[in-house]
């Protein structure tokens, strides 16, 4: 596809596991294992999955904080795999982290925090003051906030500053790793509204990572569900939340805490996921989800499932979608 802003192709990250006095490498953690993902211009793509499934590792590779072990990253049609950490690429892709407190230097005023990216990216200093004013306006903070220090700001205000800082260099993609998990729902609502407005105004794309699946359902255009470093299911928000096909997605959705009976009725009736996510240093054979899957059958132990295209937008990595293999197995209930 040519229209994509970002394309991940078989992106992988392997971390060595070291042990003992001499820190010998005794194994590897396949934190991310062959992820294919696209993000269009102006699109919001969500990544869901349990803790340790590799979401942040994907994010950190995209912004150049980690070097991929394998695979390629294409940005705006150009292979940027070798430039991920470079200044030129960093200008186009920015990141906002979960903890608004720790991502700001306590001894730096808001204006100083915003000057850092401007200086690093060689924006002429004569324009800084004007730029800072318009950035604050963009994130709906009064101009007087330029002189404030982090301890004078609320959590939501700090997150706005972090967003302003990400916007300073006019990126095309912002990676949002749990941007609102530390915020109250009322503050979260306003930050999300801000992010949506900026997206519309600047035609930005977001990669959005969160454990709040109800928020993800509302905020994301498309969603990928990761399990042990691999995407298990990918589709539009409607595909995933109205018609989840992978048993893992169904299990995840069944665990969402909701606030009304109407929402309760939207959750899959499937039993809750049992057991723990296995160690990524020791991934099960065949389908990596089989050890927790309520539908697992013989083939799941032997053959790793590939993605089955269920529609133009929806794909799921499960043998149940393969009539030849799943013939005798019970079908999934959506």
């Amino acid at each position: 596809m040519s229209g994509n802003l970002l394309e991940l192709n078989q992106l992988s990250k392997r971390f060595p596991v070291r042990k003992g006095l001499f820190q010998r490498v005794v194994g590897h953690v396949n934190a991310v294992d062959g992820v294919d993902l696209t993000i269009g211009r102006g699109e919001i793509v969500g990544l869901a999955g349990e803790s340790g499934s590799g979401k942040s590792t994907v994010a950190r590779m995209i912004v150049g904080l980690l070097t991929p072990t394998e695979g390629t990253v294409t940005f705006d049609g150009e292979d940027v795999s070798k430039q991920l950490g470079t200044l030129a690429f960093k200008r186009r892709v920015q990141m906002v982290f979960q903890n608004p407190g720790s991502s700001l230097n306590p001894r730096r005023s808001v204006a100083d925090a915003l000057k850092v990216p401007l200086r690093v990216h060689g924006v002429p200093s004569s324009t800084w003051a004007e730029r800072i004013r318009s950035l604050l306006e963009m994130v709906e903070l009064p101009a007087t906030f330029a002189q404030k220090y982090p301890h004078e700001l609320s959590g939501g205000q700090k997150q706005r500053v972090a967003i302003a800082r990400a916007l300073a260099v006019q990126p095309e993609l912002i990676v949002l790793d749990e941007p609102t998990s530390a915020l109250d729902v009322s503050v979260q609502a306003k930050v999300i509204e801000l992010l949506l407005r900026i997206r519309d105004e600047l035609d930005l794309a977001y990669l959005f990572i969160s454990h709040d699946l109800s928020l993800m359902r509302n905020f994301s255009d498309r969603v990928g569900v990761m399990y042990l470093g691999k995407l298990a299911e990918m589709g539009t928000s409607d595909d995933l939340f109205l018609r989840p096909q992978h048993p893992y997605t169904q299990g995840l959705l069944a665990s969402i805490p909701v606030v009304s009976e109407a929402e309760e009725a939207l959750k899959p009736t499937q039993r809750h996921l049992k057991g723990e996510i296995p160690s990524p240093a020791n991934v099960p054979s065949g389908c990596r989800f089989r050890t927790r899957c309520p539908h697992a059958f013989d083939a799941c132990r032997e053959v790793a499932p590939t993605f089955h295209e269920l529609s133009a937008t929806h794909a799921s990595r499960c043998h149940l979608h393969d009539p030849a293999l799943a013939g005798s197995a019970e079908p999934t209930k959506a």
Binding site: S186, L215, R217, S237
Partner: peptide, 19 residues
């Protein structure tokens, strides 16, 4: 009521007004 309205809903009808 205002607090409940801020919670994103699984039916995809979230509004982001906050309080």
């Amino acid at each position: 009521k205002a607090l409940l309205a801020c919670v994103p809903k699984l039916d995809g009808t979230a509004t982001y007004e906050g309080i």
